[in-house]
């Protein structure tokens, strides 16, 4: 463990420390997925790659959007757009807890002074048809990460089991940096020629998106886009496995999954607009879950999903 790292002084220093720590532990450092998602779990590097028998190890930052959490940038802790740091290792290594604790040291949390606890928290994603058991990790009473052993994703049992770590980056960084309001947090080094705070980067967008999410997003358009994405996803998966042009077996699990992600985000936006009733809610979640399951079914039938090539 690198004890030499100077204590981080900015949001990005914490992200960089996590990146280099997990790189040093052998993870492939991926980039964020280029679509709107509600959490790092939606990145296909987690959802799809946790399926099937092939080993996998990846870490990445994922910008995440939760339209209902928007507070116009005024709440010290709540944002409609925030960052998660996500680690997925399959099969989960026996020392995953120790690896995780090492990452906290890497961002400057002194294990000799703090009280770290693993407190039961079972994870379930109704939209992904996924669940797992694990903990929320507490540092001095504050939740700093989610730690989950995936048991099922997209309705499929996970064999082997992936270990998933999710860090809420803003909250963790605020804690490490001793900042009380997210907008006051230094984004780059405070001594940089042009120092920027989190507010400099995101205050305006939080306002803009809060207004759009809550009041002006066109619900007819959103609803249509939800339905189009749903239909599109199914249509992609209805294609024959063999590509008529190349003659190769190409199941388009990822393009279909993109449409599933899109439908999920449209649902979140509709929810924020307050046009989905309690009873309808369950129905929408069920529709997204059906898509996620179809994509999972498709993925496990591909090479990356663990399918051993036909003799033919």
């Amino acid at each position: 463990m690198s004890q030499t790292t100077a204590a981080p002084r900015s949001f990005q220093a914490i992200i960089l420390a996590l990146q280099s720590y997990w790189a040093s532990k052998g993870c492939a450092i991926l980039q964020p997925y280029d679509m709107e998602v509600g959490a790092g779990t939606f990145h296909p590097a987690t959802t799809l790659r946790s399926l099937g028998s092939r080993p996998w190890t990846a870490a990445y930052v994922q910008p995440s959007r939760r339209p209902t959490d928007g507070r116009y940038g005024e709440n010290p802790n709540r944002l409609q757009h925030y960052y998660q740091y996500q680690v997925l290792i399959k099969p989960s290594p026996p020392d995953l807890q120790d690896l995780y604790l090492g990452s906290l040291e890497a961002i400057g949390i002194d294990m000799d002074l703090h009280d770290i606890r693993f407190v039961e928290d079972d994870w379930e994603s109704p939209t992904l048809g996924a669940w797992g058991l694990g903990w929320e990790v507490w540092c001095d009473g504050m939740e700093v990460s989610q730690f989950t052993y995936f048991q099922q994703v997209g309705g499929h049992d996970c064999h082997p089991v992936s270990g998933e770590l999710t860090y809420g980056l803003e909250r963790l960084a605020m804690y490490v940096l001793g900042v009380d309001h997210v907008m006051d947090m230094p984004f780059n080094d405070p001594d940089a020629p042009i120092p920027l705070t989190y507010a400099d980067v995101f205050k305006q967008t939080e306002e803009e998106y809060a207004r759009w999410n809550f009041d002006t997003a066109n619900t007819d358009v959103l609803l249509r886009q939800f339905e189009e994405a749903e239909a599109h996803c199914k249509a992609i998966l209805d294609q024959p496995a063999t590509d008529p042009k190349t003659g190769k077996r190409i199941i388009m699990a990822h393009p279909a999954y993109d449409q599933c992600i899109k439908a999920s985000h449209m649902f979140n936006l509709l929810d924020a607009r307050g046009v989905i009733s309690v009873t309808e809610r369950q129905a929408y979640i069920g529709r997204v879950r059906a898509l996620a399951k179809m994509c999972a079914d498709a993925f496990v039938d591909t090479r990356a999903g663990g399918r051993t090539e036909d003799a033919a």
Partner: peptide, 13 residues
């Protein structure tokens, strides 16, 4: 739950 590539079930690994 299961963990790693084992088949044994326990409350946590």
């Amino acid at each position: 739950m299961r963990w790693g590539d084992g088949a044994l079930k326990w409350v946590r690994p």
